[in-house]
Design a protein around this nucleic acid. Structure first.
Lengths: 310, 310
DNA sequence: CCCATCATGCACCCTTTGTGCACGGTTATC
DNA sequence: GATAACCGTGCACAAAGGGTGCATGATGGG
């Protein structure tokens, strides 16, 4: 209900370039350029300035974007309240999530909604957490399930979003089946200090989680290999190249020649999985129902775990 | 910046029929109907119900319209603040006003703005007070100068508007030049009680002001004739048909065989002239400048009056 | 019982809006 | 210092959304 051009401006404010804005919103760069030009004409404000080979927000532009946060939240709140008051159904619902979160939480949610609300058009987008926030701003999705890193750019009280913790997902260590530690029930990080490690590339979200866990216990592990996908990492471990961290929610097929061992003791790494929505929209019946389903799913997952892991 | 369809819904909420909404917004009835249908589709809410040969807002619709007041105000406030912060100029500026108010206040304002801001497109619409409020809601105008009747539907703290008193305009009595009272400096309502009166039609804004003034002093005057335009009324008085009330701001040509006499004493009728803007927009530099010009003009008018009339 | 009024659907049209490509300008790299 | 890569923008073209005018159906008043 807020003008699309203002939404586009907000997306631009997040990513800084016309091209990226186009990619996020689904428009072409020309369209974004035209929208921003048109917005300036309608409002009679200069919002952008040339800056090198790109464009940059003017002070007025930044002011407008900053102020629009409450406007968007106000609208979301109004829409949610009207939905609630009139017991209405909305027609489109966009979900976003990250790999395992999407598989374990979003897929069941989408399936449930598909059965309880047959005429609701549910769309699921797999995207990393940062992109999920961008997609929320761009109004491509309405709810995101993401992993929140404490070391990340994650800000709990961002005026644009409201976040709900679903569960903490501990990271296990995966070990070759013929490794001496493979038969253990649990293991500590100290015991794993001398192992060759397989991690994601430096700078990725999980890599920072990895280093944070080991600095907590005061050892610096040796990184032997890097992998991008969990599957690749598992294959590396299965080939005896080293050990690696794997979130509890990530599935591990039995035929992989790899075993999963729980980590105990100090510095035990975990990722926090949260649901994020645009501020104001949390009162919407559909969002409420979805959060309920997600929470129930999260509780079922927690209930299936050994007690010392809760 | 708020979706046009929501603006249309708000106008509909004020006037109740699609046809009237079309007339006010400048669209065709079909377009209004399509917009409202589209709005319901996009929001997934049922906002309208058939009601006899017309349509009526549902509870959800009323809720949405009521809640949108703050949304609109928030946007106006944001726009005004951005204008202020960036020292920007807006391109279009719509003014609305009522007969003498338009002539005495709006015309000078428009002329001043035309010279101080040459590239500002100023548009003046003459319309009665009620319509001015509608035009503000429909965003056809940005500022209205209207007469506020205490007996009117005028509500000072309407969440949609902000109002500023410009001046109180007393009503004089106009008398045939050969009338015994014509040579007086001032006259009281009691002295005029037995005269035949010429007023506007019952139900009009000025008629209610007329009756209110006389009930205050406890007499019921005799209404001999009715006129719609000031010019007609003046002509009637000039023909010796009776006496009438004329606002101080309404011009009286000397060749009319009619004299204007000030009214003193209890129940002295006056109309209050106020400027109205959409709530939130009052901080806009252009609005501020306009209000300043209007206030200055009002002060000049007040300064030219006899002291006992202030 | 007929007519006035009101909303809506439909066909047509036009303005708006988005796309794809080429261009000019700027920065980084070798 | 030349070249390549990148970024935003303008233009021609195409698609679609949105508006108009008229006809239709429904309803209430005289």
């Amino acid at each position: 209900m807020i003008d699309q051009r203002l939404i586009t401006l907000r997306v631009f404010a997040r990513c800084g370039t016309v091209g990226a804005t186009a990619e996020l919103t689904g428009y072409s760069p020309s369209a974004v350029s035209a929208q921003l030009r048109e917005l300036q004409r309608v409002l009679g404000m200069q919002l952008l300035t040339k800056d090198g080979r790109g464009v940059r927000l003017t002070a007025t532009g930044r002011f407008l974007v900053a102020g629009s946060d409450t406007l968007i939240a106000e609208w979301e709140s109004l829409r949610a309240a009207a939905m609630e008051a009139g017991d209405q159904v909305q027609s489109r619902f966009g979900l976003g999530g990250f790999s395992t979160a999407a598989a374990q939480l979003l897929a069941p949610l989408a399936a449930t909604l598909r059965s309880t609300r047959p005429l609701l058009e549910v769309q699921v987008l797999e995207a990393n957490p940062a992109r999920c926030f961008d997609l929320l701003v761009a109004e491509r999705i309405d709810l995101a399930v993401i992993v929140a890193m404490q070391s990340d750019t994650y800000v709990e009280d961002d005026p644009r979003f409201e976040q709900t913790v679903l569960l903490d997902d501990p990271l296990d260590v995966i070990i070759p089946a013929d490794h001496p530690l493979a038969s253990r029930e649990t293991v500590t990080l100290e015991e794993l200090a001398s192992e060759p490690w397989i991690t994601e590339a430096a700078g990725s979200t999980y890599h920072s989680l990895f280093t944070a866990a080991f600095t907590a216990v005061g050892v610096t592990p040796r990184i032997a290999h890097e992998a991008v996908e969990w599957e690749t990492q598992i294959a590396f471990v299965g080939a005896g190249l080293g050990v690696g961290l794997l979130p509890r929610l990530a599935p591990l097929r039995s035929a992989e020649n790899v075993v999963r061992v729980r980590i105990t003791g100090k510095g035990r790494p975990a990722r926090r999985i949260v649901a994020a929505v645009r501020r104001g929209s949390i009162a919407s019946p559909l969002i409420q129902e979805s959060l309920g389903i997600l929470q129930a799913r999260a509780n079922r997952i927690l209930a299936a775990r050994p007690e010392d892991d809760l």
